[in-house]
Design a protein around this nucleic acid. Structure first.
Length: 585
RNA sequence: GGCGGCGUAGCUCAGCGGUAGAGCACACGACUCAUAAUCGUGGGGUCGGUGGUUCGAACCCACCCGCCGCCA
């Protein structure tokens, strides 16, 4: 268990701007990182949460070609959609920017130059596949042909799906482009490589010492480090960050490889954030102070970029701090199958948010998300979790408590002397600040939310045995005491639930008569850094320490309560499944 | 092919060396303040398979099967 840290840098994986993101994406990095960030701020920590859209690379140029627009236009449009999704989900980035800003380009080039000057980057000539008509590189997996081993006619340039053997594109018989059937041309091409093996021992020793990482992340990374090869950091492409060296800078056909520029985004976004605040050097206090803990959130397909490649780059660069924790999630499947955008087996974030509240999706993705194991998203479970848990257990507790207090007293009731049961319940619920907080500190979101729910159920039990609605007829004072205790518990639970359910907890906060903001929300902002106008997601987030039991005082007026959540008709399950079938067909 | 993960009640998942757990579903009961919500009781599993280590194994080891991811 980790103790309190005053500054927490939260680096969230950069969603790829090749299209709208589906719920699997935000389940992996988006919601968990925001729960963590909100908790840390409620605790009083200084938080900086950075990310942005990843907009370079071949899939972007292919997507743009397909739609007959420029890569820039294509990325612009998807960036807007993604920013809008993340904003509506209430993800409190301090800055969510993009990799196509001038600031990013400059930081990436400086980073490249530093590594180059320190001798960690070298060139090497290799055989590459090109499309004769466009002159563009064809990535291995975009080439198909007959497998030389088993004769399977649709083997890919990286491996044969039939016999499982790994292949080189040049091995294929009758190679052709999967995009347009063109026969690729193989020719020599010079590229820059990052000398990963130079960091092998340091990486190994460093990772081995990270006993607080999730065991699979640590083991997986250690194994990966055992066999490191130099890794290409440039591509034959016209879309990306130019190589910042004489003779290369102006070449239209060479760009920095998208993986390399994207991980530097964590640093460049921090630099941009500081510059927007007018503090050119403000990024340093986040990257050069060993007491700052850097948490990285991503899906499991991205582990090695964060646990090996980026740390090696940071080591090579010199005076920048390494990650503290790599919080990787597993995969979400959808109704028993993998998400597949190309097959239409997907559900976009904006689609869910058009029909359901953000808190419902946040709740589902936290309580049933792929935190430590692959999990399956089903609409039946989505509706069930909403109706039984969010509405039935938590929403109903709030409603029945506030309705009784409001109708009978019009305010937070004045309690008599607390009985044993009252004190026991208060102690148990208030223990949630330690128990839920401890779990959140360890990035155990599912367990944390389950614990908060357990405490809510405890208050329902308490109300069931105290029966204030019954007792108020004979003993008004005792009923007042019970309802006072219940209101205090609800108020404490509100704080405990805020990292997970910010929208509804803010409403509850106001219902309880507070006039301030407990759950701030992000907003889209147009910014202009030295003539480079673009749109970011940002916010002015309060970090008043609030992670503490309720002190709500008797006599405070209560308004007429409104339900926090709405029940979903079970027939929406079939509607959603039909909608999926339509889009799949 | 190599590496990592996962395979536990009908369903979704916890547990990860000391007599099998939760929620849902199902059955029965209590209550009726509350969005027909809530609370209680009960039935239900040879913990993927086969070996091994151990006084004792879902839990450790080996191999096998199935699924997921990465290397690509």
């Amino acid at each position: 268990m980790s103790e309190a840290s005053p500054k927490v840098l939260i680096c969230v994986a950069w969603p790829y701007a090749s299209g709208p993101r589906h719920v699997g994406h935000v389940a992996g990095f988006g919601v968990p990182s925001d729960v963590f960030a909100r908790y840390q701020r409620l605790r009083g920590a200084e938080v900086l949460m950075v990310s942005g859209t990843d907009e370079h690379g071949t899939p972007i140029t292919y997507g743009a070609d397909r739609e007959g627009v420029s890569p820039r236009e294509f990325a612009d449009r998807n960036n807007r959609i993604i920013v809008d999704d993340l904003r509506r989900l209430g993800l409190t980035y301090d800055i969510f920017t993009r990799t196509t800003t001038r600031n990013h380009e400059r930081v990436v080039q400086e980073f490249f130059t530093t590594l180059y000057e320190r001798g960690y980057i070298f060139t090497r000539t290799q055989l590459g596949a090109f499309s004769p008509s466009t002159g563009r590189t064809l990535p291995d997996r975009y080439i198909e042909g007959t497998c030389p081993i088993c004769g399977y006619p649709e083997a890919r340039g990286d491996q044969c799906d039939n016999c499982g053997n790994q292949l080189e594109p040049t091995d294929l018989i009758n190679p052709r482009s999967r995009i347009d059937g063109e026969i690729p041309e193989f020719r020599e091409t010079e590229h820059f490589f990052f000398d990963l093996p130079a960091f092998q021992q340091r990486l190994h020793d460093w990772i081995e010492a990270q006993m607080h990482w999730r065991p699979n992340v640590r083991r997986y990374s250690l194994n990966f480090v055992a066999d490191l090869k130099p890794r290409a950091i440039t591509r034959d492409l016209d879309w990306g960050v130019p190589v910042p060296l004489p003779g290369w800078r102006d070449r239209p056909d060479k760009r920095i490889y998208v993986w390399f520029d994207a991980v530097i985004g964590y640093l460049s976004a921090t630099v941009e954030w500081a510059r927007l605040r007018g503090e050119e050097a403000g990024w340093r206090s986040w990257w050069q102070d060993p007491s700052v803990r850097g948490y990285y959130f991503m899906g499991k397909d991205n582990i090695t970029f964060h646990s090996v490649m980026w740390p090696a780059m940071l080591m090579g660069h010199g005076d920048l701090e390494l990650p503290y924790d790599i919080v990787s999630s597993e995969f979400l499947t959808m109704e028993g199958r993998q998400f597949s955008v190309s097959r239409g087996h997907t559900i976009e974030v904006r689609d869910v948010l058009s029909r359901y509240d953000a808190d419902v999706l946040r709740y589902y993705l936290t309580i049933a998300g792929p935190e430590t194991t692959d999990t399956d998203f089903t609409w039946a479970e989505f509706v069930r979790r909403n109706n039984d848990e969010l509405v039935g257990t938590w929403g109903n507790l709030v409603h029945r408590t506030l309705v009784q207090a409001q109708q009978n007293f019009g305010c937070v009731p004045e309690p008599g002397e607390l009985a044993e049961a009252d004190r026991r319940l208060l102690a148990e619920v208030e223990g949630g600040f330690a128990s839920v907080g401890g779990l959140l500190e360890q990035a155990r979101f599912k367990a944390a939310l389950t614990e908060a729910m357990r405490l809510a159920a405890l208050v329902n039990q308490y109300l069931g045995s105290e029966q204030p609605w019954h007792r108020i007829k004979q003993d008004r004072r005792r009923a007042a005491t019970t309802l006072f205790v219940a209101v205090r518990c609800v108020d404490s639970l509100k704080t405990l639930f805020t990292p997970f359910l910010p929208f509804s907890c803010q409403r509850l906060h106001e219902m309880l008569g507070y006039g301030d903001v407990i759950a701030p929300q992000p907003e889209a902002r147009e910014v202009d850094l030295g003539g480079d106008a673009h749109r970011i997601l940002a916010g002015d987030y309060d970090r008043t320490p609030r992670w503490a039991p309720s002190c709500i005082e008797p006599g405070r007026p209560l308004g007429v309560p409104r339900p926090l959540y709405r029940k979903l008709d079970p027939k929406v399950v079939d509607e959603e499944l039909d909608r999926m079938r339509v889009s799949t067909a």
